[in-house]
Simulated assay, not measured.
Amino acid sequence: MSTAPSQPTLVFLHGFAESPDIWADFTRDFPTRYRLLMPALPGHGPNPQPVADYTIEAQAQAVLAEFDAAGANKVVLVGHSMGGYVALALAEAHPERVAGLVLFHSTALPDTDEKRAARDESAGFVRRHGVGKYMRSAIRPLLAPGNRKRLAAELKQLEDTAAATPEATILGCLEALKHRPDNIHILRDAKFPVLFIGGHDDPAVPLDTLLPQLALPAQSHALLLRGVGHLGFIEAPELTRRAVLDFCAAVC
């Protein structure tokens, strides 16, 4: 493995049916002392190619290979939604590589039985009606109601990115999300600091399920935002950017 670079390395992991582009505006003004890596998760990105294995563990191995190739040894992981699940898998497999972890609208809990059933319903809808129609109904509710009109252009961009994701990736990731394990022990055993970013109006990671997790890491930080759903990087970019920058400054 290559020697770690002198610059602190921040690894930004996007979520399900997203792409590294979600971080472009968010990180535009980050200090140059940081090196930023924004890998595309398997089957995602500007030129998505379906892969054989979409499990969260396989996605984590793909990300690990990318920051190994970049010569990054110890990193701060910033994971949005599914990206947070991938970050947790990386932290479990290689805790010595993690300087800090940001769970950005993400959780260490597995799917509930109700959520697993909903994943199956979503997969059936995709098979019958296609990815585009599914995404037009799935992404809008992730924004807090008060933000949907204000962020219409950003919502359209997210929908277009999601609609371009291969059906095989959508179906593979839905299955991977359904079967991801309970990772509460990773937070409880963490030797690295953890920042939780949550939204009061997040339908995907409800605040009442997130709050008990805040007490688990030995070093825990939190930003809980009113009027924000599941997409704080566009719903409250200044507040979430400042929280991530302050966290990185403290751990790097």
Score class of each variant (00 low, 15 high):
residue 96 E to S: 10
residue 10 L to V: 03
residue 25 D to W: 00
residue 58 A to S: 15
residue 96 E to H: 15
residue 51 V to P: 00
residue 69 A to K: 11
residue 45 G to S: 00
residue 7 Q to N: 04
residue 93 A to G: 02
residue 110 P to L: 14
residue 46 P to W: 06
residue 4 A to T: 07
residue 58 A to N: 05
residue 125 F to L: 02
residue 116 R to L: 13
residue 43 G to Y: 04
residue 2 S to V: 07
residue 94 H to P: 05
residue 75 V to L: 07
residue 8 P to N: 04
residue 33 R to M: 08
residue 67 F to R: 03
residue 24 A to L: 14
residue 84 G to Y: 00
residue 65 A to G: 02
residue 125 F to Q: 10
residue 99 A to M: 08
residue 117 A to T: 12
residue 36 L to K: 03
residue 127 R to G: 10
residue 95 P to D: 08
residue 26 F to W: 15
residue 17 A to W: 13
residue 55 T to N: 07
residue 59 Q to N: 10
residue 6 S to H: 10
residue 70 A to W: 01
residue 57 E to M: 05
residue 86 V to E: 03
residue 73 N to K: 14
residue 42 P to H: 09
residue 75 V to K: 03
residue 20 P to Q: 11
residue 85 Y to V: 08
residue 6 S to L: 15
residue 73 N to S: 07
residue 124 G to E: 05
residue 115 K to R: 08
residue 78 V to R: 05
residue 87 A to C: 14
residue 98 V to S: 12
residue 76 V to D: 01
residue 101 L to N: 06
residue 96 E to A: 09
residue 15 G to Y: 04
residue 51 V to C: 11
residue 75 V to T: 07
residue 59 Q to H: 08
residue 71 G to L: 01
residue 107 T to F: 12
residue 101 L to H: 09
residue 43 G to P: 02
residue 102 V to L: 05
residue 58 A to C: 14
residue 83 G to L: 02
residue 47 N to P: 00
residue 19 S to H: 06
residue 102 V to R: 06
residue 81 S to W: 06
residue 115 K to C: 01
residue 100 G to R: 02
residue 119 R to S: 10
residue 86 V to P: 10
residue 80 H to T: 10
residue 103 L to A: 04
residue 114 E to Y: 00
